[in-house]
Design a protein around this nucleic acid. Structure first.
Lengths: 182, 182
DNA sequence: AGTTGAATAATCAGAACTGAGTATATCGCC
DNA sequence: GGCGATATACTCAGTTCTGATTATTCAACT
C-alpha cells in the first residue's frame, strides 16, 4: 500500500505543484471515498519522497505568515511515477479480509446472537452501499470506474453475508428467526 | 486490522496453549490463504497481549534446549476474545483498494500499453482464483465460508477489470485490439 | 570427531505510521 | 478593539510492524 500512496502523491504533484496543506485538503475532500491517508502520513511520505529525490521541497517565506513548503516533482520523480503506475496496473495482490477471522470463530457464539451480529453488519454494508450509490451520480465521470469497483465489492460482501445468514437461520432457534422476519 | 489479528491469536490460544513457534507454524501452514501475519509481528502481538494481561507467558527451560515460552490465555483474555469476536462480526469497515489509485491516473498511459498491463493483471487474478478454487475442494468444510468469501471478491475483481478492458479496447489502436483477440 | 544443514525460538534495529501538539494569521462579532 | 473560532502548516514523540540476524539443538553425513 505504501507504494500506491506514493504513486498518488506523485500523480497529484505531477499535475500541479502544491503546498502540503493544499495536497492534504484535496485528498481529504475529493478522494476520501477511496483513499485513507492521514495528514501526518502524507507529510511523512512527502519527506520520504524528498529524501529519495523524487520530489523537491522549497521553503517559502511570504511576509510574516508561518513558513510553508512548496513540493514539486523532479525528473527522477516523473520516471518513478511511470514505474509505479505500470506496476500498480499490472500487479495483483491477494487481499486479506478482517471478516474471515470472525467467521472462523463464529460457531463459538450462540446461533441467535451470531445471527443478530451478522444482521447488524448487513445493515452497515447496505448503508455504505447507499452512500456510494449517491456518489455515483454526484461525482464527475472520472471517478465512475472507482465507484463501480467499490459497488462490485460491496455486492460481493452482501451476497456473502446473506448466504451466511441463510445457513445460520436454519439452525437458529425458531423465536430468533421469527423475530427477525417480522 | 490489528484487533482482528489479536482476535486470531486469542482464538487459537483459547483452543490450546502453545509456544510462539507452534502458533506461527500453524498460522503459516493452515491459514496462509486468508491471513498474512509475519512471525515477527506475531511475537510482537503476543508481547502486547501479555502487557495488556490477556495472555500469560511462562518461560520453559527443558534440559538445555533453547528456552522457549508457553503462551496461554488468561480469564481477562477470554473476555477480550468474546468482545473482539462480537465486534468483528457486527462491524463493517469500508475497504481501501490499491487498484483505485492506478485507475485514477490510467488515462496518462497510451491506450495500448494500459490495455496490455490490465490484461496482465487479469491473468494474475484468474491464476489466484484457480488456486482458491482448488483449496475449496481440498480444505475441510470449516474453511468453506472463508474460501467462498474470497471467490466472491475475486469474481467482483474480474467483472471490474473486464469492464475496464472492454471500454479501453474500443479506444485502442486496431492492431493492439487484434493482437489481443487472436 | 568434526561439519553441515534443518528445526526451533526468538530478538533487534530500523522503517512506517499515527495522535496529539505547536505556532501563527485571519475573520467575524460583540 | 479585543477575543474566540477557524484556517494554515507542519513537528514530534510514541506505537506498530518488518527483514535480517542470532543462538541452540539434533540428526545425518564424512
Amino acid at each position: 500500500m505504501t507504494m500506491d500512496r506514493q504513486l498518488l502523491l506523485l500523480g497529484l504533484l505531477r499535475a500541479q505543484e502544491m503546498h502540503g496543506y493544499q495536497l492534504n485538503e484535496f485528498i481529504d475532500e475529493q478522494m476520501n471515498f477511496c483513499v485513507d491517508l492521514k495528514r501526518s502520513t502524507a507529510y511523512y511520505l512527502l519527506d520520504k519522497l524528498c529524501r529519495d529525490g523524487y520530489v523537491a521541497e522549497e521553503v517559502e517565506r511570504e511576509g510574516n505568515r508561518p513558513e510553508r513548503k512548496v513540493y514539486r516533482i523532479t525528473p527522477t520523480g516523473e520516471e518513478r511515477f511511470q514505474e509505479l503506475l505500470r506496476q500498480n496496473l499490472a500487479a495483483y495482490e491477494p487481499s486479506v479480509y478482517a471478516e474471515d477471522i470472525g467467521i472462523i470463530f463464529e460457531h463459538q457464539l450462540a446461533p441467535d446472537e451470531s445471527l443478530r451480529l451478522m444482521r447488524m453488519r448487513r445493515e452497515a454494508i447496505l448503508a455504505h452501499r447507499a452512500t456510494m450509490e449517491a456518489l455515483h451520480v454526484s461525482l464527475p465521470p472520472s471517478h465512475t470506474a472507482v465507484i463501480e469497483h467499490h459497488l462490485l465489492h460491496l455486492d460481493a460482501e452482501i451476497t456473502w453475508i446473506d448466504r451466511l445468514i441463510a445457513t445460520r437461520s436454519s439452525h437458529a432457534s425458531p423465536q430468533a428467526t421469527d423475530t427477525a422476519s417480522s
